[in-house]
Deep mutational scan, measured.
Amino acid sequence: KRPMNAFMVWARIHRPALAKANPAANNAEISVQLGLEWNKLSEEQKKPYYDEAQKIKEKHREEFPGW
């Protein structure tokens, strides 16, 4: 399985609240909304998620060399 990128790290945190706020929305609609919200963030706001994604990527590389 591929390691999460910065957007996926961010979305994992924000998806539950968005789903709760929009109970009639299906998963595809929630994903679209998450994408729109992510694109509104500044690079500075995204930086912690890029940092976390890098850590996940490095850990994945250690656990699965050659993947």
Rank of each mutant, 00 (worst) to 15 (best):
E43H: 12
K47P: 00
A6Q: 01
R61T: 11
F64E: 15
H60V: 11
K1P: 03
V32Q: 05
V9F: 06
G35S: 14
G35L: 13
I56R: 05
V9I: 12
Q33K: 14
E52M: 11
W38V: 02
R61C: 10
I30G: 02
L34E: 02
V32I: 11
E37V: 05
F7P: 02
A25H: 09
L18S: 03
P23N: 05
N5L: 01
K59E: 14
R61G: 11
W38F: 01
V9C: 11
K47A: 07
E37P: 00
R2G: 15
A11R: 03
A19I: 11
G66S: 10
Y49D: 00
R15Q: 13
K40L: 07
A19P: 01
R15M: 07
K40H: 04
R61L: 11
K57V: 13
H60S: 12
F64N: 11
R2M: 12
I30V: 10
A6R: 00
N5A: 05
A19S: 08
K59N: 08
F64C: 09
N39F: 07
G66I: 11
K1V: 09
A53I: 03
A28G: 09
V9L: 15
A17Q: 05
K46H: 01
V9Q: 03
R61P: 10
A21Y: 15
L18P: 02
A28D: 12
G35C: 14
I56G: 11
P3K: 15
Q45A: 11
K57I: 13
K55C: 10
W67S: 13
P23S: 04
E52A: 05
A28I: 05
A28P: 03
I13K: 11
E29Y: 03
S31I: 05
M8Q: 14
M8S: 11
K40Y: 02
A11H: 02
N26I: 05
R2K: 04
H60T: 13
V32E: 14
V9H: 05
W10S: 00
G66P: 10
K40I: 03
N39E: 12
L41I: 05
R2S: 06
K1C: 03
E63V: 07
Y50P: 00
E58F: 06
E44Q: 13
A21W: 02
P16I: 10
G66D: 15
I56Q: 09
P65G: 10
A17I: 15
L36Q: 14
P3Y: 11
K47Y: 00
Q33R: 09
E37R: 06
N22F: 09
D51R: 12
R12V: 06
K40C: 05
Y49S: 00
L41Y: 03
K40A: 09
A28F: 12
L34K: 02
R12T: 13
K59L: 12
F7A: 04
H60L: 10
E63D: 08
W10T: 01
K46W: 01
A21P: 02
Y50W: 04
F7Y: 13
N27A: 13
I30W: 02
S42K: 05
N26E: 07
E43N: 07
K1W: 02
P16R: 07
K57E: 15
A17S: 12
A28T: 10
P16M: 07
N5Q: 02
Y49L: 01
L34G: 00
I13T: 13
Q33W: 06
A17G: 07
Q54S: 10
H60K: 09
N22K: 04
E52V: 06
K20V: 06
A11E: 09
H60F: 12
A25Y: 08
E43G: 05
L36I: 09
V9D: 03
A17W: 10
N26M: 06
A21I: 03
Q54L: 13
M8D: 03
K47R: 13
N5H: 07
L18Q: 05
Y50S: 04
Q45N: 11
K55G: 09
E58H: 14
L34C: 04
F64M: 14
R12S: 11
P65I: 09
P65S: 14
A19K: 12
Q45R: 07
P16L: 09
I13D: 14
W67P: 15
A25R: 09
S42D: 07
K40V: 03
F64K: 15
I13H: 08
N27C: 13
K59A: 13
K55L: 07
H60R: 14
E37W: 04
N26K: 06
D51L: 11
E37M: 14
A21K: 12
